[in-house]
Design a protein around this nucleic acid. Sequence first.
RNA 1: CGCAGGAUGGAGCAGCUUGGUAGCUCGUCAGGCUCAUAACCUGAAGGUCGUUGGUUCAAAUCCAACUCCUGCACCCA
Length: 518
Amino acid sequence: MKRFYLTTAIDYANGSPHLGHAYEKILADAIVRARRLEGVSCHFLTGLDEHGQKVQETAERLGRDPQLLCDGMAKEFQAMCQRMGVAYDDYIRTTEPRHREVVKDILRQLNRKGEIYKAVYGGLYSVRAERFVQEKDRIDGRWPEDFGEVIELEEENYFFRLSNYQDWLVDFLQKNSNFIFPAHRQRQVLEFLKEPLNDLCISRPKSRLHWGIEMPFDGDYVTYVWFDALINYISAVGYGTENFSNFWPADVHVIGKDILSPAHAVYWPIMLHALDLPLPRCLLAHGWWLAKGGAKMSKSEGNAVHPMDYADIYGSDAFRYFVLREMNVGQDSNFSHDLFVARYRADLANDLGNLLSRLVSMVDRYCGGTVPAPALDGDLEKELKSFAESTVAHVRERCGAYDFAGALERIFSLVQAANRYLECREPWKLAKGGPEEQKMLRDCLGSGVECLRIGAELLFPAMPAAVEKMLAQLGVERAGDWRVLAWGKSTAGKKIGKRTILFPPVEEEEDALPPLSA
RNA sequence: CGCAGGAUGGAGCAGCUUGGUAGCUCGUCAGGCUCAUAACCUGAAGGUCGUUGGUUCAAAUCCAACUCCUGCACCCA
């Protein structure tokens, strides 16, 4: 049975995880969680890209074995996923035998088919940077300092016949306008494809680069890192085995906009096509997080956000909520401490956390801790029920369109509606009245709890851990299926759990900033 | 130069595909409430939707021109 198969980009093992990595994984995780709530069986892959020049250089600089270096990085990235509640099903590392063998198999196949040829490549080569450079790299006519000596170099390499497939790819993109999300990115790729494509150099001589997968038909070369890395999407799901068709084609490749073109939008489709494999259904290219005022985030600027610090201080769910709420998928977005705290305070602590808190408190105080049934008659109750149900429909639709910002905005409208409803009914006053008021009180609290229960179910893709805690306080099990999520009696008669503060208030001081370790 | 994205009340955003009284959150001001995490609810102030022209009965939304910001160097989500 074919599953919904989603991948993220595999992270490059040359640097520690940062906000961008965390965001991409959280976005992917939320998509998968939402899909599962629709009853779809899913497979969520992420992993680590371990070969290539940069990793080799870093390992040499540190005097460490590159494999050990990568082992450490894998642990770091996996720990981040764990911390962020990112529940992948499989983690692929490009140094694993299961990957290496598939890469070699594919190279053999393409070679047999005549898609690969050997040719001499000549150009300007920087000895210090250990790579080919171009005339346009010159600054004021001179080579940058860190290039060192630049020499003419001729080198034999293996090339993949990309250019043969350019027309096919353009045709494919024109016929499949939903291949890349958001749509304007697809136009950009088509623009890029107006220029003739060069064949792709897919080998590196071992004299220059040894840290890679050996070319199966020539032991003097290793495979170019991009060619190697992209294959993870099929090597991880058993390419060449009967299981493969349960996964491939992938439904979504979640990637950053920087690696859309040419790697994912050009190399990868052509590689697959040359192998007679179907293409993934969608490339989802997300934007970048910018520092305050739209500045680029970087380690050197010292304005990078450290996701783990936020998770440690505010909880991983608060962090997940922020990035999903604030980023319009596909566009760039700002991350600033002020924005984060504003969201945390207003949405999580005041609106949501406080709603839970007041409901649990009142059920405890006025109903002996047993949740009453939600009312079916009053006008306000009907209105609330109707809004909750339309919210379910709206959120399902938005999540299907990867619009978590829109979905979360709507869920918080529901939370506000519940707060407003309590304000209108004033259960704390009803509690002081006679039998009729007592009946209204029970109807009111039952409705309030039911409303929050539905909101919580909808929040699950964004805040899985917090939702479990909320539902535990409301005394209910998570339904775990949006298709049957209707206003009902599922909370009635349940005993509420222990009331705890889900999102504790944060201090006022500016110093409450997480430590910005450089 | 070219390509792409952006420009909406003090801040951050939505709306633009399928024109029709400008919406959300924060912030500010005034009021209400007391169940609750000094939280919640109500009301108000604040925008000629970058500029200029055009199409139209009607434009933030369509068209044209222009201005400003960002990205397009290996790497980086």
